[in-house]
Write a protein that binds this DNA or RNA. Structure first.
Length: 421
RNA sequence: GUGGGUGUAGCUCAAGUGGUUAGAGUGUCGGGUUGUGGCCCCGAAGGUUGAGGGUUCAAGUCCCUCCACUCACCCCA
């Protein structure tokens, strides 16, 4: 019979790898907590309409990458392709803006996009999202980016590149759109097929194209940064000034465009060279109009997402140190000894020690091998002979020294020895 | 969605131009004198060679189809 395998693009995170995830998540909780962020746990399914309205009808994500289905009845539901929309939905649904002027949230969980899998790209992938709502102060932009960089350094990623840009606001972007459209329209022959289409749907995307011809045309094109309104220009300047007050080197990439429509003003991306083509480990930006567009009060916000698979792939997390080793292996010989081991083993575990044993009635030799392989600090040898004498042999696996231990108070004796090692 | 690459034991890989019972390392299990780990030695289990079809006296090897994995385009975390 053919075995059933996981769905294409969906991965298992096995022991050995899962400890790394725990480590990274722990670091995130610690650091984000220091910055005043609190966790929000969100559903994975949302009404399709939420993503259409927030991400944008004409984005690739909404047009062709969503797992969407019709629930019993006629409601269209979608497995979330990103988290920000859900955070905004919850923010509105529970009127979180009412209790605090500034709300800081983070969430960790899986996202779903039906793309062709490749290195660093999966159909189910996990993101760590942080969102700050209720402030349009440029220092907040710098603070959020600083938190991200600090977190990445915290898990050992220090050679990543931070790029920032400003995408303007409803006051200046439409004007620039016209300028760039006029510029590109005159050179449309040199553009690739995709970009010709983008000309009418979203001309700014042409800046992001990797086709040589398009890159060339774009390289001499006017830049949005040059057309920012006064407010956006000042804001961008202050964000940069804020970042410079900390050790966070960045470059301004005027051609960076983000794939979601809701971004305004500040946009940023963190990339690394070690990931192949999918080199972005984190990205984010400001979205001052999103909450309003979803029918809520004026709530400017900024946030980012970290791709956990990608982060864990590049973070130098040592295997040892995240996986603990057992304190003691109990090698029991014979039925009676095994019964004794069964009780002692579980009592010790409940007392907080990390104990292994096995009930397969193997030879002492193979049990010693197992203890060694597991990296146990001690082995307790318990055979019929020991049982009769009411003692067991505690072997130190480092120096091979053995000492007898009375069975009557074995639990306390062992715990006291373990606590000293 | 479009290309390229790769599919042999749990894992990493061998098997000159088609030619006996498809091998090795590693891992697993057992053994190397009575009940003592590591190093070393011996043994065992473990394969429908991704699946199906074709060519041939003969296919892991050549051809076709499908599937999976993988890298890249695209897009993004």
């Amino acid at each position: 019979m053919k075995i059933i395998t996981a769905v294409r693009g969906f991965k298992d995170i096995l022991p050995g790898e899962s400890e790394k995830w725990q480590y990274v998540e722990g670091k995130a909780r610690e650091i984000f907590g220091n910055f005043g962020f609190r966790e929000i746990v969100l559903p994975i399914l949302e009404k399709t309409e939420l993503f259409k309205r927030s991400i944008g009808e004409t984005t690739d994500i909404v047009e062709k990458e969503m797992y969407t289905f019709t629930d019993r009845g006629d409601e269209s539901l979608t497995m979330r392709p990103e988290a920000t929309a859900s955070v905004m939905r919850a923010y509105l649904e529970h009127s979180l803006y009412a209790s605090e002027s500034v709300v800081k949230l983070y969430t960790i969980g899986p996202m779903f996009r039906r793309e062709r899998p490749q290195k660093g790209r999966f159909r189910q992938f996990n993101q760590l999202n942080a969102e700050l709502l209720g402030s349009k102060d440029p220092r907040v932009d710098a603070e959020v980016i600083l938190m991200l960089i600090h977190f990445l350094r915290g898990v050992g990623v220090s050679d990543a590149q931070l790029e920032i840009n400003s995408l303007g606001c409803p006051a200046c972007r439409p004007a620039f759109r016209d300028v760039i459209h006029a510029y590109l329209a005159g050179k449309s022959d040199g553009l690739c097929e995709d970009c010709q289409r983008r000309l009418s749907t979203n001309p700014l995307r042409v800046f992001d194209c990797k086709v040589e011809g398009c890159k060339e045309i774009v390289s001499t094109a006017p830049l949005l940064i040059e057309f920012l309104c006064g407010e956006c220009r000042d804001h961008f300047g202050e964000v940069q000034a804020g970042l410079r007050q900390f050790d966070t080197p960045f470059t301004v990439n005027a051609r960076m465009v983000r794939g979601l429509d809701y971004y305004t003003k500040t946009a940023f991306e963190v990339t690394t060279g070690a990931l192949g083509a999918q080199n972005a480990i984190a990205g984010g930006g400001r979205y001052d109009r999103l909450v309003e567009d979803l029918g809520g009060p004026e709530s400017p916000g900024i946030g980012f997402a970290v791709g956990l698979e990608r982060l864990i792939a590049v973070a130098p997390i040592p295997d040892e140190g995240v996986v603990g080793k057992p304190d003691l292996f109990i090698a029991a010989l014979g039925k009676e000894a095994q019964d004794f081991a069964f009780v002692l083993c579980n009592r010790l575990r409940m007392a907080g020690a990390r104990i292994e044993t096995d009930y397969a009635a193997r030879s002492l030799k193979s049990q010693m091998k197992r203890s060694d392989k597991l990296g146990c600090r001690f082995t307790l040898i318990l055979g019929e002979r020991e049982l009769q004498e009411k003692k067991a042999l505690l072997r130190d696996m480092k120096g091979s020294a053995q000492q007898p231990i009375g069975l009557d108070d074995a639990e306390t004796t062992i715990l006291s020895i373990l606590s000293k090692n």
